[in-house]
């Protein structure tokens, strides 16, 4: 088991691995880091065309910002989603991707997952910086909300890290987990108000004659809350609700505790299972 002192000693390693991830990301491509912007922008354009112009999904008007723009509405949900999606996939694959290291040297293995997730968090932050600048052109001055945005990023990072640890450890034993994840992520994407406003989800719905509290169930999904928080801060220019904040913090902490628990339990046999 990785003791705290080992984790402190692994600081340098964590830094190195994170830098390696960041540097290596676009190493052999000509456009390099520009890809980190091109990718989400391309997705954004595709979704904007399909959902806004073809399917006529209307974005809500920002209160109090008064902003009414589907692309910006979309970006506030899409970027956090991308972070979850790639951070989780890559973080979960970290033990497999580094089998060579794990079988040859000892170090607290969770550093691998931590550095991968952190590198994607950094990339997410950089993407948000670009978006923040773009917001200026449509009149949303977001600077005063940025400290709060950073805090939400941190909470989301803890959440993604916890998930990646737990699933990544199980994935060493059952490689199917990563394939299941592909399907689960698609479901999760549409269960989160990214390409549509949350107002499309009714408060109650009738199912087999029973009335279901649809919206309340829907809001159990922590990503619903995360997206709402980013939108409040960047699109609406207002504080997120305390309920959202408490809920995601709670979920992040519990996910980390469980994920890390699973990871530390399974970690000792990694070297022989890989």
């Amino acid at each position: 088991m990785a003791s705290v002192s080992e984790l402190v000693e692994a600081r340098e390693l964590f830094r190195n691995l994170t830098l390696r991830e960041l540097r290596g990301k676009y190493k052999q491509s000509t456009l390099g880091w520009a890809w980190s912007m091109i990718n989400p922008l391309a997705t954004m354009l595709i979704f904007a065309v399909i959902f806004h112009y073809v399917l006529k999904v209307e974005p809500p008007t920002g209160k109090p910002s008064g902003l009414h723009s589907f692309p910006f509405f979309l970006l506030c949900g899409l970027l956090p989603w991308n972070f979850l999606s790639v951070g989780l996939t890559a973080g979960m694959g970290a033990p497999l991707a580094n089998a060579g290291l794990i079988k040859k040297v000892y170090f607290p293995r969770e550093v691998l997952t931590a550095s991968v997730v952190t590198s994607w968090a950094v990339q997410f932050a950089i993407e948000l910086v670009v978006v923040v600048i773009a917001f200026l052109f449509v009149g949303n001055v977001t600077f005063q909300w940025l400290p709060a945005v950073v805090m939400v990023i941190l909470i989301q990072t803890v959440f993604v890290y916890g998930l990646a640890l737990g699933l990544g450890a199980i994935n060493v034993y059952f490689r199917d987990v990563q394939h299941f994840l592909g399907i689960a992520m698609q479901l999760w994407f549409y269960a989160t108000p990214i390409v549509y406003p949350i107002t499309l989800i009714p408060a109650h719905a009738k199912l087999f004659g029973h009335s279901l509290p649809m919206r309340a169930l829907y809001e159990l999904n922590p990503m619903v809350r995360f997206v709402a928080m980013y939108r409040d801060l960047l699109y609406n220019l207002r504080w997120f609700s305390l309920a959202d904040f408490l809920y995601v913090t709670g979920v992040a902490v519990v996910t980390l505790a469980i994920g890390r628990g699973i990871f530390l339990r399974l970690e000792p046999r990694f070297a022989e299972e890989l």
Partner: peptide
């Protein structure tokens, strides 16, 4: 410091 069988823990791409 351990040097086990063929090679240390190197990352082939680096």
């Amino acid at each position: 410091s351990a040097l086990l069988e063929v090679g240390a823990g190197f990352h082939p791409e680096l």
